[in-house]
């Protein structure tokens, strides 16, 4: 049987889990706790097709949030809404709805980003590696590249970047002092 991401199965016997069943698999008796919510029981009536180009779903299919008359095929990887094949925009490995695709096109970092690079943490990782000055310089480059770009969506702190900057500058200063001392013959 082809993998169906919508199919809810019994964890033990993989039989279809009955709609509304809260505790027990009818096929193997496996027990679990299931909380059913009204969304599972709302009417899913999809209107009859209006044209040959339409690809309506059955009465049990989810519908596209932009086209209620069309069957949804995937969730938008950015906002989580359900979209049909007509609306779905394939952006590399991601499936986006048109508004999220537009947001991604108009801004490098939309309001609903699907990923963010943590430049501060990368720089911090580099700045604590005891291979100065190359890693200290690399940390400064990473900080420069990430300058002005938003950090974590949920923890927008700049603390790692600041610590990385201080450590990298300390390393470069220490290296410069060592070079100067060596040049002046202090180690002879």
């Amino acid at each position: 049987m082809a993998f169906d991401p919508r199919r809810l199965t019994c964890p033990r016997c993989q039989a279809d889990w009955p709609e509304g069943e809260a505790h027990r698999c009818a096929a193997c008796g496996f027990t679990l706790h299931a909380d059913w919510f009204p969304a599972a029981f709302r009417p899913r009536t999809v209107p009859a097709p209006t044209g040959a180009a339409e690809s309506p779903g059955s009465t049990t299919d989810p519908v596209c949030y932009l086209h209620p008359q069309r069957r949804a095929s995937v969730p938008c990887d950015q906002c989580g809404r359900l979209v049909c094949g007509l609306c779905e925009v394939q952006a590399g490995p991601r499936h986006l709805c048109p508004p999220c695709f537009d947001a991604a096109q108009t801004r490098a970092d939309g309001e609903l980003p699907s990923s963010r690079t943590l430049y501060g943490r990368i720089a911090l990782g580099l700045s604590v590696v005891p291979l100065f000055p190359p890693t200290a310089l690399a940390a400064l480059v990473v900080l420069a590249v990430g300058r002005g770009k938003p950090g974590s969506l949920v923890r927008p702190s700049r603390f790692p970047a600041r610590v990385a900057l201080v450590l990298a500058l300390l390393q470069l200063t220490a290296f410069s002092v060592l070079v100067a001392l060596a040049a002046s013959g202090a180690f002879d």
Partner: peptide
């Protein structure tokens, strides 16, 4: 919502 067949919501 339609009432669930076996369990309450």
């Amino acid at each position: 919502a339609t009432a669930p067949p076996q369990a309450p919501t």
